Simulated assay, not measured.
Amino acid sequence: MTTTVTNNIETAHSLKQIPTVSIYGLPFSKMGMDETIATLTSAIDNRKTMHVITANPIMIMSALEDSSYYSMMRTAELIVPDGTGVVWAAGYVGQPVAERVPGFDILHRLMALGESRGWGVYLLGTDQQTIDQAAANLKQQYPGTRIVGVRNGYFGPEQDAEVVAEIQKAKPDILFVARSATTQEPWIARYKAELGVPVIMGVGGSFDIIAGKLKRAPKLFQKLRLEWFYRLLQEPYRYKRMLVLPKFVIKVVREKEKVTKARP
Rank of each mutant, 00 (worst) to 15 (best):
E99Q: 13
V253R: 14
L124S: 03
D160M: 00
F248Q: 02
S68F: 11
Y122Q: 01
D127C: 03
T130V: 11
I58D: 14
D34F: 15
V177C: 06
A89T: 07
K223Y: 10
T3V: 14
K219L: 14
L175C: 04
V148R: 00
L113C: 04
I210V: 15
Q128S: 11
N7L: 14
L110Q: 07
P143D: 14
K30P: 10
L15D: 02
V199R: 00
T39P: 13
K223Q: 12
A43P: 11
A178M: 09
T20N: 10
V197F: 08
E10P: 00
R74C: 08
I200G: 05
T260R: 08
I209P: 12
N7H: 14
H108M: 09
T6L: 15
K261V: 00
V86N: 04
L26C: 04
E257S: 14
R238M: 15
I53H: 06
D105R: 07
K139D: 14
E35Q: 15
P27G: 07
D82Q: 01
P236W: 06
G32Y: 05
A98K: 10
K240L: 15
A63H: 02
T49P: 03
I44C: 08
Y70N: 01
V86W: 13
M242H: 00
K240Q: 14
L226G: 01
Q234K: 04
K256N: 07
K261C: 09
A161L: 08
Y191H: 09
V80M: 07
T126N: 12
L64A: 02
V21Q: 12
L220H: 06
M33P: 05
V97F: 13
R47W: 13
A12V: 03
K192L: 07
E65N: 13
I9W: 00
N137Q: 12
A55L: 13
I167Y: 13
V177Y: 09
M73K: 01
I106A: 04
A178L: 07
I106Q: 01
Q140G: 08
K258L: 15
